[in-house]
Amino acid sequence: MKIVAVMPAYHEAARIGTAVSHVRVCVDEVIVVDDGSRDDTAEVAREAGARVLRHAVNRGQGAALRTGTDAALKRGATIIVHVDADGQHDPSFLPALIAPIQRGEAAIVFGSRFLGVRSEGMPFARRVLLFAARQFSGLVLGISRRMTDPQSGMRALSRDAAMQLRWTQDRMAHCSEILRMVSQSSLAWTEVPVQIRYTADSLAKGQKATDALKIVWQLLVRSIS
């Protein structure tokens, strides 16, 4: 089994080195997709041991994940894991994330922040927003109510699932799009608890409350296009 981690990165020169080093020990290969950064993200990631692909222009996290996933498939990956480049995702949870696929119990595994392991430093407002997003996802988007984390970015996919799920949302809405596709497919899925470490840096760069409206708008436009 070849396990490949895909890490989309945009202006992450300060954090990508550590993140790649930590993830590398858990997988066979790390692919970093530098999403049009103008800093040294690509060089730092390469020095840390990642294979680096580069988007000439910033296209968003969803687009970078798709590119990295296609590259992983091309390189013969049997399991692909999506991990953030800012070090928020704790790599010690990767074995548990991959295990259900290795055991043949699931084709896709989502890391959830709401299954008992408390995320470090998650602001109260973020918790409320994610609760609202979960209700919206279930009621409007048709995402399974059993899915506990509507914006989970840490996930593992079997090769078949990665080939079958062709998400097209380039930016933040890809999380919801993937959950929706999985809900409507016959793919076996499960969730495992993961811990996310929120820091001042990652919160400053991460999603804002207003991004929820952008995600809804992106999904709406795509639904009629």
Partner: peptide, 28 residues
């Protein structure tokens, strides 16, 4: 709304182009 939809389609095509360029040197 029509403009947004047209922009969305164009944006997707642009992403495909950027992706094709990024993947061209990936070996097996």
């Amino acid at each position: 709304l029509h403009l947004h939809v047209a922009h969305d389609k164009l944006s997707r095509e642009f992403t495909e182009l950027v992706r094709h360029d990024a993947l061209k040197d990936v070996d097996r």
